[in-house]
Nucleic acid binder design. Structure first.
Lengths: 161, 161
DNA sequence: TCAAGATATATGCAAACGCATATATCTGAG
DNA sequence: CTCAGATATATGCGTTTGCATATATCTTGA
């Protein structure tokens, strides 16, 4: 297995580039009003959950440090878009859910955004089959074990300049 | 073509999730020293270019506003990792290239990081064929026309609140 | 039952960011 | 040649972020 390593790195670089290009394109769309994409990400994640989420659970989906997310959530609550209630079963934690206003906001922006997304991926000329491949592969990538460093241990072999 | 739109959105969400999961995983690796991932991104991009890059060109690869990138570049130059020279042919612009120290730094971290990347994508159980598919699809996505709003124009069809 | 450590979230503070806009330079129509 | 507008980068300023750490609560083993 020679280029295995190279193959993986090329794929990852392509993914990074695609991500950056598309995020910029979506950010440039005139659909966000006074909601940032990060804020939308939180609203969206909450919208997909039946029961209230903890901050730490949210934090698995949002690319933000815990303190930053904690404060983002406070701001969204102050703006009336989400509700923060303490969990009687674990009084350390905070349960987050969309308010009606938050749900309405998410739905509106979500509709527009979904359209942008569909348009962008179509424009790129991806076939339905490719879209499915992309989803399948990315889902595999997302289901990572979150292994903690010293685990796999066969860190020998290297790759010079 | 019914689920076309849904297909695209599901694929995009999977890509976003994979991106977030992997970025967090890589950020957690103990290989970065006093270089942030964003800084590394700049060093890496510069390392892949024969001739000096402008800030505006760099900015196409780095997910950061122009002023933020401008200042990041100043900081890297102050730290001696990159060189900023003004372009005699266009005195508005700044030409950026790696210093020797910057190149050494990029190579060292790059080697470690490449290993993390390969390990992560392997662990996810992607076959070489899947790695190639992922790269191909993401490259298509990255090659977007950067169309400016009013371009494609068939923005009819709607979908109300 | 209780202290030691784990877990969930919050806070202080300096660094970094985005937005609006300034500055310098280039380009093209007239 | 010149001036209006475009382009490339920088700066002012209020907001947001990350890091380190504090606070509150849970869990567990002796």
């Amino acid at each position: 297995m020679p280029g295995r390593r190279v193959l993986a790195n090329d794929a990852w670089e392509a993914l990074l580039t695609a991500h950056a290009v598309l995020i910029k394109q979506f950010a440039a769309e005139d659909i966000w009003g006074d909601i940032s994409m990060r804020e939308y990400d939180v609203l969206y994640t909450l919208s997909k959950c039946r029961e209230p989420l903890r901050i730490s659970e949210l934090n698995r989906h949002v690319l933000l440090s815990q303190p930053a997310l904690s404060r983002l959530v406070v701001r969204l609550a102050e703006r009336g878009l989400i509700e923060r209630q303490s969990d009687p079963a674990d009084r350390r934690s905070v349960r987050l859910s969309l308010s009606d206003a938050g749900r309405a906001c998410q739905r509106q922006i979500g509709r527009w955004h979904a359209r942008s997304v569909a348009r962008a991926l179509m424009t790129a000329g991806l076939s339905p089959s490719e879209l499915r491949q992309l989803e399948t592969i990315c889902l595999k990538l997302a289901r990572q074990p979150a292994h903690t460093g010293t685990a796999t241990e066969d860190n020998n072999e290297d790759m010079h300049p």
